[in-house]
């Protein structure tokens, strides 16, 4: 288990620009500006429309979005976390081709009318499609957003229950990135835990890609926010 804890914003001013053990070093020409360096790194790792890691995505809007608020990061659980239900889907798709003929031949399932068999087969594949659809929706809409003003956590616990929590960047007190396990290490995903001030809820970005990079960006934003506050309290 590799746990990398970033220093809080107030303590990290004397720290070198990259306090984390980031696997990708920033290019030499951009190290002069840490903000550009992190942003460039984010863009390099950013994926497509179905990506779990989208930096500065276009066309993203969310509930409660304020004027002038820009989405910096749109995160979801790493795509590898979908493997279990994809495997189940593969088995469900293969079952009518392999298992059902075997059951009929063995006499486990009694002979049924052709119409009933057709409806049962269609139902099976459609139900498999629903299973895929629900799992995809659950993955796609359980998102974490990092904007230039706050962090937003959108949770769908089921198809009918959701929770949207957010906290201003200025309320962030501590950020830690955690990677545990071989699979998480290979595919570079883990948890980012954000502790906030007061009674605000803490945020746990679970299984997000490049957790150290996300934590680094958050740390950079809190530093910037603190400097702004010191200059203009």
């Amino acid at each position: 288990m590799a746990r990398i804890k970033l220093a809080p914003a107030a303590e990290s001013e004397s720290a070198p620009p990259e306090p984390t053990a980031s696997p990708v070093a920033a290019p030499a020409e951009v190290t002069a500006s840490p903000a550009n360096g992190v942003d460039r790194e984010l863009k390099q790792k950013s994926g497509g429309r179905f990506s779990a890691f989208a930096a500065f995505p276009d066309g993203v809007s969310f509930t409660g979005e304020e004027t002038g608020e820009n989405v910096i990061l749109l995160l979801r659980q790493h795509i590898i976390t979908n493997v279990p239900w994809i495997l189940v889907t593969t088995l469900l798709l293969l079952a009518p081709l392999v298992l059902f003929p075997a059951f009929f031949m063995a006499g486990i399932i009694p002979p049924v009318p052709a119409g009933f068999r057709l409806v049962a087969l269609l139902f099976w594949y459609l139900a498999t499609g629903t299973y895929v659809l629900l799992n995809f929706l659950y993955w796609y809409f359980n998102a974490y957003l990092l904007t230039n003003e706050r962090v937003v956590d959108i949770d769908w616990f089921s198809i009918i229950y959701r929770r949207v929590s957010s906290a201003q960047v200025s309320k962030i007190q501590d950020i830690s990135a955690t990677q545990s396990g071989v699979v998480a290490g290979i595919f570079d995903f883990g948890d980012v835990v954000i502790q906030t001030a007061g009674e605000l809820p803490n945020f746990d970005f679970e299984n997000v890609p490049h957790p150290q990079l996300v934590a680094k960006k958050l740390n950079e934003m809190t530093e910037k926010e603190e400097k702004q506050w010191e200059a203009n309290p």
Partner: peptide, 11 residues
Amino acid sequence: DLMNQVLGTRI
């Protein structure tokens, strides 16, 4: 429909 209102993307 509600999900898309909470988080809207291009897709």
